[in-house]
Nucleic acid binder design. Structure first.
Lengths: 139, 139
DNA sequence: GGCGGGCTACTCGGATAGTGTGTGTCCGAGTTATGGCGG
DNA sequence: CCGCCATAACTCGGACACACACTATCCGAGTAGCCCGCC
């Protein structure tokens, strides 16, 4: 049980896109090179992000990707759900009765605690908090 | 990315064991039958729980399993870590510098939020909250 | 009656295997800007 | 000078392959309580 590499790739890429505040389009190849991500695989992740309306993909020459919303409106949770799916992390027991599975209910609450943190963390808040930081430029 | 079935099995089994407050030993077969879990597989999960000191295994005739601690001292987090391992859910980037990976730090915080909830949820608190409930008897 | 050995019930741990998902690659199809060529 | 067309650069999406963890099963080995029979 752990987050997939695809999620890691997506988060890094989205952060990179958010730093291009002027909204210029960036090609798949550049995104892949900057973070040492296999381009073919990253393409699949970007497709998912695009389908969720988080980024825009432009075909043809001078095409590329850019954010579809303001960085303040894109949370980590949005990105993670776009990649991993929005199914709950925990599948409860089969023989569920009218109140559902007790263990499952508890795990849902635990997951909600994590989701709430991720929903409150937007691309903008991360960049602002780390402005001028060495990290943000080279990671 | 989701919790394994093994975790589900372990949580249910531990809850069942906790309800045997008199500390009688319960055989692997009975535990498996009560929750419709394949006994051979459950055995592996119980081995992990035993190695983490959460339950005691008694060999031989009239043997079986019982909690090694009081239900109030066993949290959901203990059980989950025993099964899934205590590694962080998110593996950050490889090229980490002196401050680590920015994305990874955020994900660690998110995971901490979930862990904190799970650490505060003990077998005892779950049972007390659902005492007399239909669920607790039949799940 | 007491002692010992076999029996039974159970756990422990390794070996093995199927299965699904994550990860990665490749390639063809479709799309758009650009530049050159002809009118 | 203007418009059309070929080309290049790029995305899109499916097909495919591989690795690895999860899930599950089976079996032999070891262990502990119990009972029966022998002394």
């Amino acid at each position: 049980m752990n987050f997939s590499k695809g999620t890691n790739y997506a988060l890094h890429t989205m952060l990179y896109l958010a730093m291009q505040h002027d909204g210029t389009k960036i090609s798949l190849q550049e995104l892949a090179d900057k973070r040492n991500i296999p381009a073919s695989y990253l393409s699949k992740m970007l497709t998912k992000l695009s389908k969720q309306g988080l980024i825009e993909a432009h075909s043809g020459a001078q095409g590329g990707f850019q954010l579809a919303k303001a960085p303040s409106e894109i949370s980590f949770l949005n990105i993670i759900h776009a990649i991993e799916g929005d199914l709950p992390l925990f599948k409860g027991c089969d023989n569920r009765n009218e109140e559902g599975c007790l263990v499952e209910n508890i795990m849902k609450e635990a997951e909600n605690a994590m989701d709430q943190y991720l929903a409150n963390t937007t691309l903008e808040s991360v960049i602002q908090k780390n402005e001028g930081n060495y990290l943000i430029k080279h990671m």
